[in-house]
Amino acid sequence: MRLHSTSSIPDAPAAEREDAPVVDRTSLLVERAKRGDMQAWARLYQELFDPIYRHVRYLTGDPAVAEDLTQETFAKALVALPDFEGRSKLSTWLHGVAINVVRRHWRWERNTETAHARLEDRRRVLDDVSAESERPDRVALQRKRAEVLYAVLETLPDTLREVFILRDLEGLSEREIAERLGITRGNVAVRATRARARVRKELVSRGWLEPSTAKPPSDGRSPRGEGGER
C-alpha cells in the first residue's frame, strides 16, 4: 500500500469558486463529514466513487492499479478533508487529489526497480506490430490499441500525458482541464498540441500508424471540436 503525505492536496482553482454559496445536499454532507461523521463520508464515497474511478482508470490504463489508486485517493481526501475550504466543488477537489495520487504512482513506477521492470514489460507491446496487421476481431483490436497507446503515453512527460488523457480520452474541454489541473486554458492548448504530436510520432515510428505527407494542423486538434470533446 502506498501512502503519501497530504501536502500535495491541491487548493481549489479560483475558477471554481462559488461566489454565492448555495447550501446543497453535497455541501451539507461535506460539512458533516468534516466533523467526523462517517456516514456522511460513506455517502460521499458512494456517490463519487464511479467518476473518480473512471478518471483514474483513464489516467492509468490499468483496472487493478486504478482501483488501488482510487481507494488511495479517497483515503487521502478523508485525511485532508478538514482542510477543504469549499472554494471549489468537492468533485473538482477530489479529481485534483486523484491526479496527484496518479502522478506519484507514475513517479514510483519510474523510480522503483520492480515497477520499472513491469513498465518495461508493458512497453514491449510497442514492438509487437504484428497484432495490428493480423487484424483480430474488433474487440481484441481495440484492447490491443489501448495497450499500445498507454505504453506510448508512458514515454511522455507527465504534464503532456495527463492533458492528453483528459482531453483526448476523457473528452474534457480545455476549460475543464484548466480547472482540474490549475493551469491556464492556453497552457492546456499548448500541452495538448504537443502531446498529440508526440503520440502520433511515436506510433508512426513504431509502425503502428502510417506516416502521412499531409501537414498537421497547427493546433494538432482532432476534427471532433474544441478540446476533442466527444
Partner: peptide
Amino acid sequence: ESPYDALDEWL
C-alpha cells in the same frame, strides 16, 4: 485528410 485522422480513429 488530416494526418491526425488515423490517430483519432485509434483513440
